Amino acid sequence: MAGAGEPGREGSGQEPLLVFRTMMRRLRAECPWKREQTHRSLSRYLLEEAHETLEAVDALAAAEDAGDPRRRDAAASHLREELGDLLLQVYFHAAVAEEHGDFDLDDVASGLAEKMVRRNPHVFGPDPVAHDDATSVDDAWQRIKAEERPRAALLDGVPATLPALLLADKALDRLARAGRPVEDLDPDDLGDRLLGLVAEARAAGADPEQALRDAVRRRV
């Protein structure tokens, strides 16, 4: 039988997400290492867990492509674990914020739900509008997002630290929406040639970041 201080007793009969919220608060109170963490000190772990989750996603895709059920099951289990580690970071940051009186996990979830309602009027609006394809949905999402957060500059809201291919993809998307297609690329400039390849990928409806990652994985 679980003791009074064990997760099995604390979470008896509760939803797992609520159980872990209670556990996170206790960890912050009783674990010296976790108690001293801040948003900034946790940043490296958020980045690491995000990359590990992406790796698990790629592994699952590779297993599915290989048509190996056992390998796929193992990859799916690994992805579940990595998503849990990523979720830990959300709980951790929310716990830190709660202690400072900034916001708590409920505020995070409520804000997200409100955003989904605002940006998906075709689903949640009083007069749902049918969209024929994903592109029109994305266009509507981007329009609503721009109305919520007017931009002073073209790349406002796009982190400069994004991987280069993803940054280029985002920049080309913003330029296209602003009616400023990229032209006159210099074929002798490596950067321009790479930018041209990203534009080519976009025209083909492909994700250049994922395409390059897949190409590398096929060869290693």
Rank of each mutant, 00 (worst) to 15 (best):
R202L: 14
P208L: 10
R193N: 14
A201P: 03
A178T: 00
K170R: 13
E209G: 13
L175E: 02
K170H: 14
A168N: 06
I144R: 00
L167D: 09
L172K: 00
I144E: 02
L167F: 07
L166S: 12
E209F: 14
T161V: 05
A164G: 12
R149A: 12
L162D: 07
A164N: 10
T135Q: 13
D214V: 11
L165T: 02
E200H: 14
L167Q: 09
Q210C: 15
E183D: 12
A152P: 01
D207W: 04
V198E: 01
Q210F: 13
A152I: 00
T161Y: 03
D192R: 01
L166N: 04
R193C: 15
P159H: 11
E183P: 09
L212I: 10
A140L: 10
L185G: 07
A171I: 03
A206F: 13
E148Y: 02
L162E: 02
L166E: 02
D173P: 09
G179F: 03
R202E: 11
D139M: 09
A199I: 00
K170A: 15
E147Y: 06
G205T: 06
A164F: 15
P181F: 00
L165V: 06
E209L: 12
Q210G: 14
R174T: 08
D192L: 03
W141M: 06
A204Y: 10
V137N: 05
A178D: 05
V137G: 08
E147A: 13
A203C: 11
A201Q: 03
E209K: 14
A152L: 03
L172M: 07
L175K: 06
A164I: 14
E147H: 10
D173M: 13
L185I: 07
A152W: 01
R177P: 05
P159R: 09
P159Y: 08
A152Y: 00
G179I: 03
L175M: 07
Q142P: 07
R213N: 13
A168C: 08
D214Y: 10
E148L: 01
L194E: 07
R193L: 15
Q142S: 12
A176W: 03
E183W: 09
I144M: 04
R151F: 01
K145Q: 08
V198T: 09
A153R: 08
L162K: 02
D139Q: 14
I144V: 09
A160D: 07
A203Y: 06
R151H: 11
P150K: 00
W141G: 02
K170G: 08
D169A: 04
R180Q: 06
G191A: 08
R151N: 10
S136A: 14
A164P: 08
D173A: 13
R143V: 13
L185A: 10
R174C: 08
E183H: 13
L212C: 06
K145T: 09
P208K: 04
A168Q: 06
E148K: 01
A211P: 10
D188F: 12
G179P: 01
A201V: 00
P150L: 04
A160V: 04
R151A: 13
E209M: 15
A201E: 06
R202A: 12
D214G: 10
E148Q: 02
L197W: 12
A176L: 10
A168I: 02
D173E: 13
E200V: 15
E147W: 03
R180A: 07
A176T: 11
D156I: 05
A164W: 14
R143I: 12
L155H: 11
L167N: 08
L165K: 00
L185Y: 06
D192W: 05
D139V: 14
L195T: 07
